[in-house]
């Protein structure tokens, strides 16, 4: 409770500092708008109902991308953990493929899938795939050998060992991967919209940039953070 209060106070102090700096330091509003004007713009956008559709679009992209990426990541992780041959064959390439900046593939996806939700969803999914796959793989291979011996002793089948020992045992590690994926999904969705989106938070930030509305750009970022 104490810590909660302290961190809330810190936020208020930071905002107050920002406001004071903008007003006293005469920072041009184009570069850094004061928080008061950011909130005013944001409120205007919400009240006029212009922001909510964008928010819905981003949320949809993020959810679909996250679900797709996590499902494929989990399945690949399980497959690679259970089939050591596949693992030796594919794992190095999958790791190497992560070096490719996935956002740079955006324009390519626009050519493939057209404008709209699909390219952003695919980018988000690609970004979420890796943490899930890697954590699933690590978690499944870390199951302690004593317990594996127990399941062997009890005559458990391979599927039973996977479902009743390895996956529950690896769950904390898999969930850690999932949390990373959630954060990355938002980044993926917003930045994906920078490239090819017509709607969504990222797209509204870009639109705001074209009319030099810094308050709205900051507002979009705040929304994304929340």
């Amino acid at each position: 409770m104490r810590e909660r209060l302290a961190s809330a106070l810190l936020l208020v102090a930071l905002l107050a500092g920002w406001e004071a700096w903008c007003r006293l330091g005469r920072v041009p509003a184009l570069i850094v708008p004061a928080p008061s004007s950011v909130f005013a713009t944001l409120w205007g956008e919400i009240a006029s109902g212009r922001l909510l559709p964008h928010l819905a679009v981003t949320a949809t992209e993020m959810t679909l991308g996250l679900a797709l990426g996590c499902a494929v990541g989990l399945a690949t992780g399980v497959l690679l953990a259970e089939a050591p041959v596949l693992r030796r064959l594919l794992h190095p390439y999958i790791v190497a493929s992560q070096v490719v900046p996935k956002l740079a593939l955006g324009p390519l996806f626009i050519i493939w899938f057209g404008f709209g939700l699909t390219p952003t969803i695919v980018i988000t999914a690609l970004i979420c795939f890796f943490p899930l796959m890697e954590n699933t793989l690590t978690g499944l291979s870390q199951v302690d050998s004593g317990r594996r011996e127990l399941f062997r002793m009890l005559g458990a089948s391979r599927l039973q060992t996977l479902l009743r020992l390895k996956l529950p045992g690896a769950l904390p590690v898999i969930l850690a991967g999932f949390r990373v994926a959630v954060v990355l999904a938002l980044v993926g969705a917003v930045v994906g919209e920078f490239i090819g989106g017509r709607a969504g938070l990222g797209a509204s930030i870009i639109a705001a940039q074209s009319v030099m509305d810094s308050s709205l750009m900051f507002g979009g970022c705040c929304c994304a953070t929340i």
Binding site: D144, G146, R147, E149, L150, M153, L165, P168, G169, L171
Partner: peptide
């Protein structure tokens, strides 16, 4: 078989 460590499943 009773193992030297209890090897129970935490969950």
């Amino acid at each position: 078989f009773v193992f030297q460590q209890p090897t129970l499943l935490d969950w």
